[in-house]
Nucleic acid binder design. Structure first.
Lengths: 225, 225
DNA sequence: TAATAAAGATAGTAATACTATTGTTTTTAA
DNA sequence: TTAAAAACAATAGTATTACTATCTTTATTA
């Protein structure tokens, strides 16, 4: 049995907490697999219900629709990154070192030992890279934002922006740089694989190492006084 | 009658070139309006056909589906930005000044005088900001990329990366910085409006001016030797 | 053991994303 | 100028999606 980490997520994201039942955890586990395989567009509750030998109606008892399920997964992911940053930097005082840990955690959130049995962090990262930004690029952003559905991401941005400001209190764009680090990490891992002309990162070497190097170069240059 | 700029786009993006007929131009004009109003998810050919007093079948004669229509519009936009950069920087020699023009063109592509009667550049920019990245975040990227469907964006990245390398030939990430400029411009205009906690740009002042300032600050710091 | 909650089975609906066919204009070219 | 061809409109039809509703079975708990 795996260690019982329970990630706290906004209750509005689900009808019934999937972490609390076998079926719920099954939905999480196999939706990650299926979205990874099909992409969010071709993924349906029908297909998921067949995969897990259940029914559409049963899945609807947990999630209002696939958009909210994706939002749940994405929030889960950012909470996971936040958690990794916390444990990996808990004894570190120098903000520069802290920022290094943050970059490592963002880039390699999937490399870490999986600690929640039913979540495949590596596949989840792939989903976040491919479909993550779709959760807020909708006509419902404002409404969903007011319900706190993007809290995990905003919290992480806050955490990272504070470390950025600790490194250089005069830097004018700590929030933008924080989110830019997340977006760059995800975008360029995607570009390296699918649109190599849009990046300098190459899949021929270790993409993760290259990504870390690039992000470190970025923050060092930008935060130099 | 407006000046006849014809933007050259990959023929695989459409069944029948919409620039060549009244109905085609109507489809472009009103799809921009309707996608801006509804977002790409709720937009359908049915709704568009009603809006322009035509039929679904007629629209399908021009575009295979709404995804390809969006791809057409997004490519159109990046060609437009490329065009703006070209005419605005045609007499400029210093690469630093050129980069400044590039930033202005990216951020304010919508502020320019409209030169194509049936394209509302301002609404088109809003679409690119909200839905632009969805065109390549699909399971068909590789296939569509091999057909040249992302050429306009890649061309622009090439153009900008060359100027970046002219400014500082030792900078290791010219392509990444180029795409990062586009993505930042779009993302943070979106964040400023909908998720202000994710950015330092504020809608209270002139967002476009602030955006330009931020991007200039970024490139200056990053490209300083 | 009765009550209750969770899950499965089944059916049904409106909308979406198309394809196909036929008829009517409009354009063009002989 | 007229016949042919292309463009467009009108209509119908299909499979899939994104649900909602209801009813039955199974498991849990009081």
């Amino acid at each position: 049995m795996s260690v019982a980490i329970k990630i706290a997520l906004n209750g509005g994201l689900y009808n019934k907490d999937p972490q609390d039942s076998e079926l719920g955890r099954n939905i999480i586990e196999h939706s990650i697999e299926l979205i990874d395989e099909l992409g969010i567009e071709a993924f349906t509750f029908k297909k998921l219900s067949i995969r897990i030998n259940s029914t559409e109606a049963s899945i609807y008892r947990y999630f209002v629709n696939k958009h909210l399920l994706l939002l749940y997964l994405v929030n889960w992911y950012w909470e996971w990154v936040q958690y990794l940053i916390q444990i990996n930097s808990r004894h570190i005082i120098d903000p520069k070192d802290k920022l290094k840990i943050i970059i490592q955690s963002i880039v390699s959130a999937s490399k870490e030992n999986p600690m929640v049995g039913y979540v495949n962090e590596s596949k989840l990262q792939k989903i976040v890279i491919s479909d993550g930004m779709k959760v807020y690029h909708t006509k419902d952003v404002d409404d969903e934002n007011s319900k706190g559905f993007f809290k995990s991401y905003k919290n992480l941005a806050l955490t990272v922006s504070q470390v950025i400001s600790d490194v250089n209190p005069n830097f004018k764009y700590p929030y933008a740089l924080a989110t830019n680090l997340f977006e760059m990490a995800n975008n360029h891992l995607f570009f390296a694989q699918h649109l190599p002309k849009l990046t300098d990162i190459s899949v021929k070497t270790n993409v993760y190492d290259e990504m870390e190097e690039m992000l470190e170069y970025y923050v060092n240059k930008l935060l130099a006084e």
